[in-house]
C-alpha cells in the first residue's frame, strides 16, 4: 500500500518526515546529560568516606555544572518558536509532560549545583571571593550554610543529577508517535551516557593520578552498561510491532546506520573502552584520549537519536489502517 498526501499540505516541519527538533535539542540533551553526570559523580565524591586530599581541579570542576547547563538552556531557548513565552513553563506543572518535569528539575538544579560547587571549592578561593566581591559577605553566609550541610547538598546533587539524566531520555521515550524514541530504555541509556560523558569531562582537567584512575575505571563500567543498553534498545525495537521494527531499521541498514555504528558505537564506546583498558593493563594513568572520544560519542548519540527518531514515524505504509 502506498500513501501520499496529494494536495496542499506542504508543511516542511512534518512532510515528508518530521523536522521539528534540530541541533539545538541535540546539543542541549548532550550538555544536560553531561551536567547530570557531573552532578552525580561530584556529589558521590563528596559522599565518599575517604576525603583526605582532593586536587584543586576536582574541587573547582563542579562549577562546570551550572555553567554548562546555562549554555544548554540558552541553546534550548533558541529552539523555541516563541522564546518570549518560555516563562509559561513556570506557570504550570503538567505531570504527563516530561518537558514540564524537566523545566522544574532544571530550576532546582541551579541552587543545588552552585551550593555543591561552593562546598568543594578550595578554602583559599572561597576566602578570596568573599573578600573581593561586594556581596561577598552574603555569599559567605549562604555558602557557610551549605558547608554545614555538605552531605545533604551532595545527596541533593546525586538525586537531581539522576533526575536530569533520566528525564532527557524519557522526554523522547514517551513520544509514542516516534517509534525509534518510544522505548523505556532511553531514560537509563541517556543517564548512563551522561555519567560517562560527565566522567570524561572531568578527565579533561588536571586531576591527580588517584582521581583519574577512579574516573577511568568508572568510565569503563559505564561504557559496558551503555553498550548493553544500546543492544537492549535495538533488540526491543527490532522485535516490536511493525512501526518499531521499521524504526529499528533506520539504524540497522537505514540512512543513519553508518553514522550510528561508526560514531557512537565504535568511536564513542568501543575505541575509548579499549584505550582505557590498555591504560589500565599497562598501569598507565588515564589520559585525555579516551575522554575526548567519549565526549564525541556522547554528542553523536544525542544528535543521531534526535534526527533518526524524527525520520521514523507511524504513518508508514501498513500502520495507516
Amino acid at each position: 500500500m502506498t500513501q501520499e498526501i496529494t494536495t496542499t499540505r506542504s508543511n516542511a516541519l512534518i512532510d515528508p518526515v518530521l523536522h521539528v527538533w534540530h541541533a539545538e535539542v541535540a546539543v542541549y540533551l548532550f550538555l544536560g546529560g553531561m551536567v547530570a553526570g557531573l552532578m552525580v559523580i561530584t556529589g558521590l565524591w563528596v559522599l565518599r568516606p575517604a576525603e583526605a586530599s582532593r586536587s584543586r581541579a576536582l574541587g573547582l570542576v563542579p562549577w562546570a555544572a551550572p555553567l554548562l547547563l546555562s549554555i544548554g538552556m540558552f541553546v534550548l531557548w533558541l529552539d523555541l518558536e516563541h522564546p518570549f513565552n518560555a516563562f509559561r513553563f513556570y506557570l504550570a506543572f503538567r505531570p504527563t509532560s516530561p518537558m514540564s518535569w524537566g523545566a522544574w528539575i532544571l530550576l532546582a538544579i541551579y541552587p543545588a549545583s552552585v551550593l555543591l560547587a561552593w562546598t568543594t571549592t578550595p578554602a583559599d578561593v572561597r576566602g578570596a571571593v568573599a573578600r573581593r566581591f561586594p556581596l561577598g559577605r552574603y555569599v559567605e553566609r549562604i555558602g557557610g550554610w551549605a558547608l554545614q550541610r555538605a552531605r545533604t547538598v551532595a545527596i541533593a546533587n546525586v538525586v537531581l543529577g539522576a533526575a536530569l539524566g533520566i528525564y532527557t531520555g524519557v522526554l523522547l521515550g514517551t513520544l509514542q508517535a516516534r517509534p525509534l524514541w518510544n522505548s523505556a530504555v532511553l531514560g537509563p541509556l541517556f543517564l548512563v551516557s551522561g555519567l560517562s560523558t560527565g566522567a570524561a569531562f572531568m578527565l579533561l582537567y588536571r586531576l591527580d593520578a588517584r582521581e583519574r584512575i577512579v574516573l577511568g575505571r568508572a568510565d569503563m563500567g559505564l561504557i559496558l552498561v551503555e553498550l548493553a543498553l544500546v543492544a537492549i534498545w535495538l533488540i526491543g525495537l527490532g522485535t516490536g510491532g511493525s512501526a518499531a521494527r521499521a524504526a529499528a531499521g533506520v539504524l540497522l541498514g537505514g540512512p543513519y546506520t553508518a553514522a550510528f555504528w561508526a560514531l557512537v558505537v565504535v568511536l564513542g564506546l568501543l575505541v575509548p573502552f579499549t584505550g582505557e583498558w590498555l591504560e589500565r593493563r599497562h598501569g598507565a594513568v588515564p589520559g585525555r584520549f579516551a575522554a575526548v572520544l567519549v565526549l564525541i560519542g556522547g554528542l553523536a548519540l544525542r544528535w543521531i537519536i534526535v534526527y533518526a527518531g524524527q525520520y521514523a514515524g507511524w504513518v508508514s505504509d501498513l500502520a495507516l489502517r
Binding site: N11, L13, I14, D15, L18, V20, W21, D79, L80, E81, H82, P83, N85, A86, R88, F89, L91, A92, S97, M99, L175, Q176, A177, R178, Q310, G313, W314, V315
Partner: peptide
C-alpha cells in the same frame, strides 16, 4: 500559553500540527 517547544508536533502520530510562522 504556547512557547513553541514543538513537543506536541513530535507527539502527534498524524502530523496534524504545525508552527504558524507568523506567531510562532
Amino acid at each position: 500559553k504556547c512557547s513553541g517547544c514543538k513537543a506536541c508536533v513530535a507527539a502527534c502520530p498524524y502530523g496534524a500540527r504545525f508552527i504558524d510562522p507568523a506567531v510562532g
